[in-house]
């Protein structure tokens, strides 16, 4: 806001033709960058600089020991791609010799974490999409009590993930309400697959409403006349859904799925608190983010390499999404203009 006081005095409205247009454009650009400067500076310091720093670090090795002055690991010099190959080929440097990592070391858990991360992302997003579409359809209908439904749906979204995790931790307790009511004896938080599904259940509960709201916004853009026309032409409910609703819903759906997928691939809070990444042999629910945080406590550089790998994986998924499904994230100019013209 402070930048707003700065814009230069506007020139007298009409100079001569092209020169004034050119000057005007330059002035607009100057104002624009002045207004953007604070945002860009914050993002550069807190996001761009650490990313660069992290990538640089990932090519370095830790010297043994911690610098007593800064409390940080001492830099051990450039090692090229070693940190990366350590993760990808599960190698460790033991006594200066590169060899296969012993089981239980973080490197040995890499592919497990990749699997867990993608498994969670695919299953939760799939469930959330299906349930989200269902919820959105119900919310889109006219009936008494719709207000209650719409308010209720916001409750899981509003609860902080940390609280959600503790709440489900209690529900999933071996003597908790779920086992008691269903009269079963599942170790939800320590059994391999049970703990994975515990996280999927909790995440689906928490995030489906958000998905449903995004889908609902897309549904409301479909004009009622389209459905009437389909009905007149004798289209069945199933046909209407697959031939009309789904294609018209696609733009909203793709954006919703993309956001959720990228979010799910970063999943940290829920498994970190609910299972501590454990389950099964101890790493059953260890997502890549949890692995990074664990690794930070051992070696910064190796953790940097792992977080860079994580970022590249997420970036690749986002790229594929936008390429294959044509997600329109920025709500681009052309569409806006077309809508404006039709209005």
């Amino acid at each position: 806001m402070t930048a707003l006081a700065a814009p230069p005095k506007s020139p007298p409205p009409k100079l001569a033709g092209r020169e004034s247009a050119e000057a005007n454009r330059r002035r607009v650009t100057r104002v624009a960058y002045a207004l953007l400067a604070p945002t860009i500076i914050v993002m550069l310091i807190i996001v761009a600089y650490p990313i660069v720093q992290s990538v640089i670090q990932s090519f370095n090795s830790d010297a043994s020991g911690i610098d007593p002055k800064t409390g940080l690991f001492r830099a051990g010099g450039f090692v090229g791609l070693q940190n990366y190959t350590n993760w990808l080929f599960q190698q460790c440097q033991i006594g200066g010799v590169t060899q296969a990592c012993p089981p239980g070391s973080p490197q040995a858990g890499f592919y497990n974490s990749v699997f867990v991360t993608f498994f969670f992302a695919i299953v939760t997003v799939a469930l959330e999409t299906v349930f989200g579409i269902w919820m959105a359809f119900i919310m889109n209908r006219n009936f008494r009590g719709r207000g209650i439904l719409r308010a209720a749906v916001l409750v899981p979204w509003a609860i902080p993930t940390a609280v959600t995790a503790k709440l489900w931790y209690f529900i999933f307790d071996p003597s908790g309400v779920l086992n008691t009511v269903l009269n079963i004896n599942v170790l939800w938080l320590s059994d391999l697959w049970a703990s994975r599904f515990a996280i999927i259940i909790a995440d689906t509960w928490k995030t489906t409403p958000f998905m449903a709201l995004l889908i609902l916004a897309g549904l409301q853009l479909i004009p009622e006349e389209t459905y009437e026309a389909a009905r007149m032409d004798g289209s069945s409910a199933v046909q209407t859904f697959f031939r009309i609703t789904l294609p018209l819903l696609k733009p909203a759906l793709v954006v919703a799925i993309l956001f959720r997928t990228l979010d799910a691939l970063r999943m940290y809070d829920l498994p970190a608190i609910l299972t501590g990444g454990g389950g099964g042999g101890g790493q059953g629910t260890q997502t890549l983010s949890i692995l990074v945080v664990k690794q930070i406590q051992q070696s910064n550089d190796s953790a940097s390499a792992l977080s860079t790998i994580t970022f590249l994986l997420i970036f690749a998924v986002a790229f594929l999404f936008i390429r294959l499904l044509g997600a329109n994230l920025t709500g681009n100019e052309r569409k806006a203009r077309r809508v404006a013209k039709e209005a």
């Binding site: 624009a32 960058y33 953007l36 993002m43 650490p50 990313i51 992290s54 940290y268 994230l329 920025t330």
Partner: peptide, 28 residues
């Protein structure tokens, strides 16, 4: 406003929001 580099900056801001937070932890 329309100015050169607008798309790039929008992309930078959006990209930053998708960046995995863990990657920032160590350098921060």
């Amino acid at each position: 406003l329309n100015f050169p580099g607008k798309g790039l900056i929008m992309g930078f801001i959006l990209g930053a929001s998708m960046f995995p937070g863990v990657a920032l932890l160590t350098p921060l």
